[in-house]
């Protein structure tokens, strides 16, 4: 079982509590307009556009019976990111097909400096079997396990995975289905179902809102979501994270949206506190 891995960050301070190794899987099933890592969305089709653009000759095209594939020479790469900027398919030639065991080999080096791993994407829930195996390996060494997900895959279908998962960091891109579709090309029925399902089982670690004033009414969305989420607090604590849209990494067409001010996010945070949420982080 091998999946495309976009990258592995040995020490991450922004993918869950404490220090964690973060694993980013390649490929996503929705299309958030403001995606901050658009190069993780698509799968490489071997078109070779990046090969011609690489200023350091770190990429080459190899053809076999299965078709063309881009080969990446890590030693020549200077991380200028030209390849991902020119990719017509929101992909990256710097991915690697890896098994859970291979990924875990890269995680293990960080013990005892990390408290756990977080798998993100792309959308990592497109590969539940892979996650299940990786997390079982991590659990055996006493590491924590978190999933970072857009919530469009139904978690109730994967009880075995949940048994080795400490928690899920779930995005609610918008509370209204219509807004959600407009932002992501996908409705949010499963997202909200997952929020309730995970909270009931004590597996909802964090709910996240990315605030993009130019795209949708964040205040309304967060207020409605809060009313929906508040009863779920009775099953146990979860954190709310309010994330300001920033243009960094965003595709050109969507990179001109306004970044909300810190004060705007504070106002949302105050509203959430009034509703009984006590663990709120603004990023």
């Amino acid at each position: 079982m091998r999946v495309a891995v976009n990258k592995i960050i040995p020490f991450s301070s922004v993918d869950g509590p404490g220090n964690r190794t973060a694993v980013f899987l390649q490929g996503c099933n929705i299309n958030c307009r403001y995606c901050h890592n658009p190069e993780t969305r698509g799968m490489c089709r071997g078109c070779g556009v990046c090969v011609e653009s690489c200023p350091k000759g770190a990429l080459s095209l190899e053809t076999s019976e299965e078709g063309a594939a881009v080969v990446y020479d890590e030693t020549k790469c200077v991380s200028c990111d030209t390849c991902i900027h020119v990719c017509p398919f929101d992909s990256s030639p710097r991915t690697a097909l890896m098994s859970p065991e291979e990924v875990y080999g890269r995680v293990k080096k960080q013990i005892p400096f990390i408290r756990g791993i977080t798998v993100s994407g792309g959308e990592c829930m497109l590969h539940p079997d892979f996650l299940c195996r990786l997390f079982a390996l991590a659990k055996a060494d006493g590491l924590g396990t978190l999933i970072d997900s857009n919530g469009t895959v139904d978690f109730s279908d994967f009880p075995e995975l949940l048994s080795v998962t400490d928690g899920v960091m779930l995005d609610i891109k918008a509370f209204s289905g219509e807004d959600h579709r407009r932002i992501t090309d996908h409705d949010n029925k499963t997202v909200l179902k997952n929020a309730a399902f995970l909270a009931e089982r004590g597996k909802l670690f964090e709910v996240r809102f990315v605030i993009v004033p130019d795209l949708y009414d964040g205040e309304k969305s967060v207020r409605q979501a809060a009313a929906f989420l508040r009863p779920l607090l009775s099953f146990g604590h979860f954190r709310i994270k309010l994330i300001a849209y920033r243009s960094m990494g965003v595709r050109e067409a969507f990179s001109h949206c306004r970044t909300p001010s810190y004060e705007e996010l504070c106002a949302l945070s105050d509203m959430l506190r009034e509703q009984g949420f006590d663990d709120i982080i603004i990023i």
Partner: peptide, 13 residues
Amino acid sequence: KNPEYVLDIVKGA
């Protein structure tokens, strides 16, 4: 926002 990050590193170190 995540001081535990530093503390984890110290503990491991």
